[in-house]
């Protein structure tokens, strides 16, 4: 079960290349969340220009974030809530 939670990332033939892709996988979240440093960003962008699997992983990760931010419906706050909060606060000494 646990292994299914880890990224199924495509293995590349060259060992050196593989570890570079591993680094990229670790940067995916930082990139899509705008938390990567300038160095991390340029390292990442240079790599995905020439690595199709990592490019695709990045696209997928952005899509996933977009599904939550763009498609999850917000619930409507009941109108009575703000009023009852104000009322209870006024009662509080």
């Amino acid at each position: 079960m646990e292994s299914r939670f880890t990224e199924t990332h495509q293995k590349l033939s060259e060992d050196g290349h593989e570890s570079e892709c591993d680094k990229i996988v670790k940067l995916l979240d930082l990139m899509i969340d705008g938390e990567a440093s300038t160095e991390e960003q340029s390292y990442f962008n240079t790599h995905i220009e020439e690595c199709v699997p990592c490019f695709e992983s990045h696209q997928k990760q952005k899509l996933l974030k977009g599904l939550v931010s763009g498609h999850l419906k917000r619930v409507i706050v009941p109108e009575s809530l703000a009023l009852s909060i104000k009322a209870r606060i006024q009662e509080t000494v």
Binding site: F5, T6, D29, K60, V68
Partner: peptide, 16 residues
């Protein structure tokens, strides 16, 4: 935060 977010997203991805 980072590791939890990473695991959470993998889990969400799997379900979707």
């Amino acid at each position: 935060v980072r590791s939890r977010l990473h695991r959470a997203r993998n889990s969400l991805k799997e379900k979707l």
